[in-house]
Amino acid sequence: MTFTLLAILAFAILALCFGALLGYAAIKFKVQSDPLVDQIDQILPQTQCGQCGYPGCRPYAEAIANGDEINKCPPGGDATIKELADLMGVDAKPLDAAHGIEDVKKVAYIREDECIGCTKCIQACPVDAILGAAKHMHTVIIDECTGCDLCVDPCPVDCIDMVPLASSSQTWQWNFENMTVGDIPVKQV
């Protein structure tokens, strides 16, 4: 009996040692990091859409740092929530639908011949992604647009659409599931 106990003890100690070594390695290779708010802000998608209820990503980052829920950012979706959960050391939860649902990436597109040049959208855009002067047609710089949707409502003539970003073979994610596939129309020889 004592032997069995000894054996179990020995195993336990060994397991502890290996665990401690691994843990030590994890600590040793850990990188020094920025203040918490910055780190959270890094993770947030910077869409600046305000769907979280705060006027931009940084204010939401501050709110999270002060204990707000991490599942209020629809553009970031589950990936962002997961990262936030890792950072904050809490459990990931599903996106809070009250703030919206995760959607495909979109950008704003102004139907230029309908635009009356009222500059309302410029004032609404949080990242200055719209170009134009008063009474001239406006246009969206696609590369700068975060797809936040904030310019759509103010437009009095409703000429702004949110269009999904076209996927190209460069950005294709190896998703075979929803591919259009043809057949081989060969006549029997």
Binding site: R58, P126, E144
Partner: peptide
Amino acid sequence: QQKIEKEKAEKAKIRFETR
């Protein structure tokens, strides 16, 4: 894709802040 998005986010952040 994530890298591109991170870059974009970084840019958006800067633009947001400058604005």
